[in-house]
Design a protein around this nucleic acid. Sequence first.
DNA 1: ATATTTATTGCAACAATGTTGCAATAAACG
DNA 2: CGTTTATTGCAACATTGTTGCAATAAATAT
Lengths: 140, 140
Amino acid sequence: MLEIDGIFEKIKSDGHRLTKIRKAMIGILFADKCLLSASEIRARLSASGLAADRTTVYRELGFLLGKNIIKEIRIADRKTYYEIVSPEHHHHLVCTKCNRVQEIAMGNHLKRQEDRIYRNEKFKVLAHSLEFYGLCRNCR
Amino acid sequence: MLEIDGIFEKIKSDGHRLTKIRKAMIGILFADKCLLSASEIRARLSASGLAADRTTVYRELGFLLGKNIIKEIRIADRKTYYEIVSPEHHHHLVCTKCNRVQEIAMGNHLKRQEDRIYRNEKFKVLAHSLEFYGLCRNCR
DNA sequence: ATATTTATTGCAACAATGTTGCAATAAACG
DNA sequence: CGTTTATTGCAACATTGTTGCAATAAATAT
């Protein structure tokens, strides 16, 4: 069973409907495995012959976020991006020249920091966001 | 000499003008030393009797960003915040319950990661953003 | 295959944030 | 006190995101 089918099954077993737009949006985010903005997603829907209202796209993104199927990333160019939640936790390398984004694993370095923060500050870290900005292999 | 006077001097010596709004905005960001959104800054200007147009506030934020006097932080509640650039590099602990933001130093842990990224990925990191989300001392 | 239920969608209207062109204003200088 | 031009305000616009409500279409039962 493809991983994407598991997502579809879960949605159905939770009592929700597998509409054309929903399937297409998940498909787009799943295929891309990279950061897409709401309007980019909407444009791809259009391109595949599935014109959807802006409202619908935002509502669907909200739905998928709530189901923990996708997550939201905000990077420094004033946009909000979405990506499929993958089992391997990762961060992003954002090239400030060509805007390409690649993923990077970080091991448990931050986990240790978070433990330290809890000990020193009594602040319980539940999530974090970490993005690196710079010049990629090609733009260097 | 106060640190803020140094900022004023630099602006003047760079051939720019010390207008009321510019001085007030720097004063507000300097005094607060915490994250303020564009509209919060505008509200504080108003409160101090200096009504400024939205356009002016955004243009001034752009100016101060360009001069590296302030920096931009985007946290997960869909807003953009600004803060004075301070010599001590730090990150933020954002309480998802009460929205309070506190600063946290991180030593050179990320520096080592950035060196590793350069070696392994040939990606030259120039900046990064790291925010922790969770429950603060009081909201835990 | 058809009817029923209601989750999902589209539309209109709105709100907040951010940008641009251009004319008016006011800092800094002689 | 004038002159220069950086800065400001205004109007108009673009983008992102949200809400209420009526129309549509998935999933289920008939």
